[in-house]
């Protein structure tokens, strides 16, 4: 048990500092950097779930694991869905200036 906590702690520090250094030193191109630091966060999530929260060490029906997987799926749908839909709306809804131009609204000065 102690080994599991210690290993989880060391790995979490390494992952946190790695993400920090990558961003501060601007080591990768923007697109790659975003993916890499999000991946580092997800790896750290798994490290802590297994080593601190002892997920997957249940005996009998794996209720904790099942409820975690369903929660994670809902989270992904809500978060990614919100970002995609709102960006799409933002892209398609014209600005005030565009509406004025498209509709030929005369502005008095």
């Amino acid at each position: 048990m102690f080994k599991s906590y210690l290993l989880g702690f060391i790995l979490s520090i390494l992952l946190t500092v790695a993400a920090y250094l990558l961003v501060v030193n601007n080591m990768l191109s923007q697109g790659v950097l975003i993916i890499v630091i999000l991946a580092l966060a997800v790896i750290q999530l798994w490290v802590q779930l297994i080593m601190f929260l002892h997920l997957g060490q249940e005996t009998g029906p794996r209720w904790k694991l099942i409820s975690w997987i369903s929660t994670a799926s809902v989270l992904l749908i809500v978060v990614i869905g919100s970002i995609v839909i709102m960006n799409n709306l933002n892209y398609h809804v014209p600005s005030d200036q565009e509406i004025i131009e498209n509709e030929g609204i005369h502005q008095s000065h």
Binding site: Y20, Q30, I37, L45, Q48, L53
Partner: peptide
Amino acid sequence: ALFWHFLDIVWIFIFTIVYLLSYV
């Protein structure tokens, strides 16, 4: 203890998404 570990996990994502991503 479970609650406390959980709060650290949430913070990993605040650190990454709110703070680190703002500098990317």
